[in-house]
């Protein structure tokens, strides 16, 4: 059975990505010219087509290999990838103003390890891999307004254990729970959820009598402000990066945006300047109660830079 799944995975990778990408290369420029859609997603994030960068696999090592094919424009250039670290959890810390979570980020702790230490009441260096995994599941699950059932499905825990984990999570981060409740209440009142910059997502089912559709709307009421604010932030950063690069007359260019990451085709002798611009623009895009962390790397292809 695993062999069949692996076969399918690789077959899809080969057919949909590896063999399709060369067909998108423009014969005149020798490049792909991805089309970005600014008016497609319900959350406010950008999406792209030809190719859809979002869909390029990143999880497993096999999928990642695709990134090797994305390279700098010539040997005078190098790729710089700048990736927001834990952008959504940081935004949740900001929105909820939960002291414990804010403090963990302020101290630049590994958030999943730190969460695990609190949940399982052990010292951070005693956290096991499994405990960190469960804490990570809870952290990400919470952002999506997940239920105990959903968490159990994702982590393979029993429903009972998942319920206990979530209860203990809310004890650890009490204001996160308050934030979730307030988000739903606010959405119920207004009919929409809102990001830090006021981007709206209408949730017409938030008062539905049907539990299934209402539940989905409630999860969106929690998630939309978090997802949408990270979209706001990345967009502000992009505008700032582009503007500063042009103002300073640099030859480096921003060439991609996908997930929480921007990629620059950086002229080699401008690299330090560009790194500063990117870091500054991304960190200061929208000032929050928690400092944004940006991981930056360079390389001769996207895989190496990431």
């Amino acid at each position: 059975m695993p062999a069949i799944l692996e076969f399918r995975g690789l077959n899809k990778l080969l057919n949909t990505y590896v063999e399709a990408l060369p067909k998108l290369v423009n014969s005149k420029t020798g490049k792909i010219h991805t089309s970005y859609n600014q008016a497609v997603t319900a959350t406010g994030r950008l999406s792209s087509t030809n190719p859809n960068l979002q869909n390029i696999p990143i999880r497993d090592d096999k999928g990642k290999i695709m990134r090797k094919a994305f390279i700098p424009s010539d040997d005078q250039h190098i790729l710089l990838a700048a990736d927001y670290s834990q952008i959504e959890l940081r935004i949740m810390a900001h929105l909820s103003e939960d002291e414990a979570m804010l403090e963990a980020f302020q101290n630049d702790e590994d958030i999943h390890q730190s969460t695990a230490a609190k949940l399982f009441k052990v010292k951070p260096d005693e956290v096991t891999r499994e405990q960190r995994g469960q804490a990570k599941g809870a952290n990400f699950g919470i952002i999506y307004g997940i239920s105990a059932f959903g968490l159990a499905q994702n982590t393979g825990m029993s429903n009972k254990d998942a319920k206990a984990l979530i209860d203990s999570y809310f004890e650890t981060y009490p204001k996160v729970k308050a934030y979730m409740d307030a988000s739903i209440a606010k959405a119920r009142e207004a009919g929409y959820a809102e990001t830090i910059m006021g981007r709206k997502r209408f949730l017409k089912d938030i008062n539905s009598a049907n539990g299934v559709v209402r539940g989905a709307a409630e999860r969106n009421a929690i998630n939309a402000p978090i997802q949408g604010s990270s979209a706001d932030m990345i967009k502000v950063a992009m505008v700032k990066i582009n503007q500063t690069i042009r103002e300073q007359g640099l030859k480096s260019r921003m060439i991609m945006q996908v997930h929480d990451e921007v990629i620059i085709d950086a002229e080699k002798n401008e690299i330090e300047k560009v790194k500063n611009i990117v870091l500054e623009s991304m960190q200061k895009a929208i000032p929050l109660k928690v400092k944004m962390k940006v991981d930056m790397n360079t390389g001769n292809d996207w895989l190496e830079a990431h």
Binding site: H33, T34, R253
Partner: peptide, 10 residues
């Protein structure tokens, strides 16, 4: 700008 500039593929 990003679309116009494009991304080089190996």
């Amino acid at each position: 700008d990003m679309e116009f500039y494009g991304v080089k593929i190996d």
